[in-house]
């Protein structure tokens, strides 16, 4: 277990050894199914994930959870508190929970998350649940990594206009209206349904996004949620969408790796006291120096991140 934990730290830190590690694991890797959970703070995502883990354990699945929380943009520090809701799975060796700071990853969260998912798969965890707070754009990164994206809503989050804001309708494969024990959850579901009927915004036209009512604290609706996730998985696989998406994602990931290497090389090239740092100060704009760095990148030096 410690080996896995250490390896995840390496992918998070973007250590140079990561590539060797991934190469070594290549043949062992059975990519796990990835379910992403996102929603506003306080909608009950962690509690919902906890309830889903409990269900999956009953069905004897090994489950991993990657729970992200935001880092401070100023200090890089973070308080990662998602484990609090998942304490009942402590000491269960078939449940692996890892907290991740969502910011401060040079290559973005998705690169670190993707590699961590691969590692978890190599250690036999399937599915992997990726949880993130929808405060900004990190939920989009989740959608880019997850096979099924679940958007969690609750009563009292605001009026119907909140729901048609960009992002929420498009990224969801499944909607959950959590806290179904609270008054107003019917109205949320109704408003959501009417929004969806006006303009089906799912990127996959053939998939009708289901709305599942849950009460995570009471463990209600969790079976229905898992059934919806399973049926989305079957839909993707039957339509050949899973394969096409996997290919597209590999391309995206490759582009991200290139960007990461280039960014690292650029930072090295611009180190204080260097010729390019000096020129940059004189020029005052980035473009010419950027061209110069791109020329350097084409040079013979081996590309090391």
């Amino acid at each position: 277990m410690r080996a896995l934990a250490r390896a995840i730290t390496m992918v998070e830190r973007r250590d140079a050894e990561v590539r060797e590690l991934q190469q070594a694991l290549r043949d062992r890797v059975q990519t796990p199914y990835v379910v992403g959970f996102t929603g506003a703070p306080g909608t009950g995502k962690s509690t919902l994930v906890d309830a889903l883990v409990a269900l999956l354990r009953k069905r004897e699945r090994s489950v991993a959870v990657i729970a992200t929380d935001p880092n401070s943009p100023f200090t890089g520090g973070a308080i990662l508190g998602d484990r609090i809701r998942m304490q009942r799975h402590a000491l269960d060796p078939k449940v692996f929970i890892r907290s991740m700071g969502a910011r401060g990853h040079l290559g973005g969260l998705s690169l670190a998350a993707r590699e961590a998912i691969r590692l978890l798969g190599a250690f036999g965890f399937d599915p992997v649940i990726l949880e993130t707070v929808g405060v900004g754009q990190s939920e989009l990164e989740v959608a880019a990594v997850a096979d099924t994206t679940v958007v969690v809503l609750t009563p009292n989050l605001g009026d119907g206009v909140q729901m048609i804001k960009a992002g929420i309708l498009e990224i969801a494969d499944i909607f959950v209206v959590n806290k179904a024990d609270l008054e107003g959850h019917q109205r949320v579901a109704t408003e959501l349904r009417s929004m969806l009927s006006l303009a089906p915004k799912s990127q996959d036209k053939a998939w009708k996004q289901p709305i599942v009512a849950t009460s995570a604290t009471r463990q209600e609706g969790i079976e229905e949620l898992w059934a919806a996730i399973e049926s989305h998985r079957k839909h993707r696989e039957a339509g050949g969408k899973a394969k096409a998406q996997a290919e597209q994602r590999l391309k995206d990931e490759t582009a991200e790796v290139v960007a990461e290497i280039a960014r690292q090389r650029a930072r090295e090239a611009l180190a204080d006291g260097g010729v390019l740092a000096e020129r940059l100060r004189e020029d005052g704009t980035p473009y010419e120096v950027a061209e110069e760095i791109l020329r350097l990148l084409r040079g013979p030096r081996e590309l090391t991140p």
């Binding site: 401070s72 200090t75 520090g77 990662l80 508190g81 484990r83 609090i84």
Partner: peptide, 11 residues
């Protein structure tokens, strides 16, 4: 957190 550490609070 404010000193830049990643704090995991388990409750």
């Amino acid at each position: 957190r404010d000193a830049g550490y990643e704090v995991i609070y388990t409750g």
